[in-house]
């Protein structure tokens, strides 16, 4: 009886291996079932999803104007101290002093892409960009100023 059981066990084991191997052979002969992205060779065609949180950017229009009023709502909302807004006073055409941003400093190395700054912004001045290749040789390159030089606030944004 021992011998019979032993032989049964051996053949059962061989069968179980064959079942698993059948799966492997299926994929060996069905190349279309395999999905591999050839990164970085496909960089030209690779497109991230619209909502992908890559980094915070400040969109500017063609007149080099942005929508940031410098209210620091994003700075308060950020859990890591990623954003630092440096403000200045501008004198407008009527001679009134008005607060405006001097520098919108963004530390990408501290950012966790939690999206809280974008939800906090009352004037839709910042948004998430879909970039993902962030590696640089020096970490000082990761500290960015988001507003472009000589940019101004858009008309009508309070």
């Amino acid at each position: 009886m021992f011998i019979v059981n032993y032989i049964k066990e051996v053949f059962g084991a061989l069968k179980s291996l064959a079942v698993g191997l059948r799966r492997t052979m299926f994929y060996f002969t069905h190349h279309k079932e395999i999905i591999t992205e050839q990164y970085p060779d496909n960089r030209a065609t690779l497109k991230m999803s619209d909502r992908f949180k890559g980094e915070v950017v400040m969109p500017h229009d063609e007149k080099n104007e942005h929508r940031c009023t410098g209210c620091t709502a994003c700075e308060v909302a950020c859990p890591n101290g990623t954003i630092k807004i440096i403000t200045k006073f501008e004198v407008n055409a009527e001679g009134k002093k008005k607060k405006a941003i001097d520098k919108f400093v963004y530390h990408l190395e501290l950012c966790t892409m939690c999206n809280l700054c974008i939800t906090a912004c009352p004037s839709d001045a910042i948004k998430m960009a879909q970039t993902f290749e962030h590696s640089v040789f020096d970490r000082s390159h990761l500290t960015k100023v988001l507003n472009k030089p000589d940019s101004k606030i858009m008309e009508g944004v309070e």
Partner: peptide, 11 residues
Amino acid sequence: EDTCGARLTMN
């Protein structure tokens, strides 16, 4: 990625 904007740490 489509809906939440991230693959691992969704927030």
